[in-house]
Amino acid sequence: MEVLYEEEYRQIQEIVERLCRDANSKAVLLIDKNGQEIASSGEIENIDTTSLSSLTAGNVAATGGIARLLAEKEFTGQFHEGEHTNVHISIVAQRVILLVLFDQRTSLGLVRLRVKKASKDIQDILDAMSAKEHQQARPSIFEEITDEDIDNLFNDD
């Protein structure tokens, strides 16, 4: 079970926003390897970020599969060039995926540079999260949820 609490969410959201700004990109998404969106920033109103997250994770998983077949540890980055939008995909700390959408307002070089810095910052937060998890058990929403609540959720309407 992966759990993201508000404090870490705010820190991660800040990094994602900063990356989007500093790289002059259209949008940035942070996605877990199973395809769940963690945070996003930029021009995402017209993008189906749920599908984008799932497809990106599928893409990364398939690329990881190819790497293993070729006895490579991992391909850490991917770049797709489009007519209007380019996509930069990278894996952070082997756990999460950073997706940057950008256009001619910036360059691949700048995106790569800013992604590198943001990846380091995200990794630090993830490491701190894991350390915290080991030190103290934090309250779980599932302590409040009863069997009856779950029954009610699936009752026929």
């Binding site: 079970m1 992966e2 993201l4 969410y9 769940q36 963690i38």
Partner: peptide, 15 residues
């Protein structure tokens, strides 16, 4: 793996 987000108040699961 389920993903519980306390900020967006979501429990996400994969079937």
């Amino acid at each position: 793996m389920s993903f519980i987000n306390y900020s967006s108040r979501e429990i996400n699961c994969k079937i």
